[in-house]
Design a protein around this nucleic acid. Sequence first.
DNA 1: TTTGCAAATGAATAAATATCCGGAATAAAT
DNA 2: ATTTATTCCGGATATTTATTCATTTGCAAA
Lengths: 170, 170
Amino acid sequence: MNKRQTRLTAIADILLNNIVGSQEELLDLLRSRDCSVTQATLSRDLKTLRTSKVATEMGGYRYVIGSGLPTDKVIEQATVDKVSRVAIEKLSISGQLVVIRTRNGYAGGVAYDIDDLNTPYILGTIAGADTVFVALREDAPMDGVFSALSRVIPQSVMEAAHNEFNINKK
Amino acid sequence: MNKRQTRLTAIADILLNNIVGSQEELLDLLRSRDCSVTQATLSRDLKTLRTSKVATEMGGYRYVIGSGLPTDKVIEQATVDKVSRVAIEKLSISGQLVVIRTRNGYAGGVAYDIDDLNTPYILGTIAGADTVFVALREDAPMDGVFSALSRVIPQSVMEAAHNEFNINKK
DNA sequence: TTTGCAAATGAATAAATATCCGGAATAAAT
DNA sequence: ATTTATTCCGGATATTTATTCATTTGCAAA
């Protein structure tokens, strides 16, 4: 992987796991990963990654990775593993419908990963910006569905869903 | 409605319907609506609205309204009135799924407003160009759902839906 | 009404970010 | 291998955006 790609991946990774409020700050973090660049280049990188700076609840700012559209296959690949798991916030089930809420912009990626599971019980998915609908086969056994999804959904979210699901059952 | 609120609403409205690449540009648009302010104030407004500037496909930038988190009930309310209510044309229910048809292009905005209701019975929404799918919790009581949605859906549409729903029931 | 206080604003400025431009590196073509 | 074109990058700078500070405005309590 060439230098630029490495750096872009590193940036994506950093922004996913840290609260970064300015480019200067990000520059430091990059340095500590041996990806030093100038602010000029970083600005360009952030543009290609379609990141944006948004206000946080605590009165500050934070850079976030932009919405779904795969800018670059390499980046996408590099981040998939981490992304799906970090991006998913909640999972609920209603009838033949599984509804997954994600961090804004990540629904597309998550849906893609789920499609990739190629599970027979899953008929298809639709993604918005922060929501994925997963259509289940009518006769899909819940444990089968859960076990398939657990390859993409974080443990904690799965547990919460399990609880909610059981509660709604009774 | 006081001056600030009016302006915030105007900003939300402008950003929803225009591609605005800088604060200066937005200042102009605000002027043409008799909401002149300085860049300083605008910067603050954009922060409270949690907007962000993202790269567009065409190499430029664009300010967009931030996702989901209700910044300010008043603003939210104000925006809802302007956009959602005029955009919604029809609402139908099928099982756990509410399907809302909107004027073309407005589905995203409507879905956003519905998400913002933060109603426990609503698991999530997905928007196409002129259609919104709303997933309901399995045990969601219909009157609860209706009452929540009525904050976004125009009276006339609600009534029509109610009728249709009752018909489908029997 | 007047007083006191918090919110809102503008002017000026600091801080942060985007772009211009020339050069280096890399890849493609001959 | 040499030339040509393209991508990438840093330094400098222009542009844009956030914040500071002083002032004003709205608004509620006395």
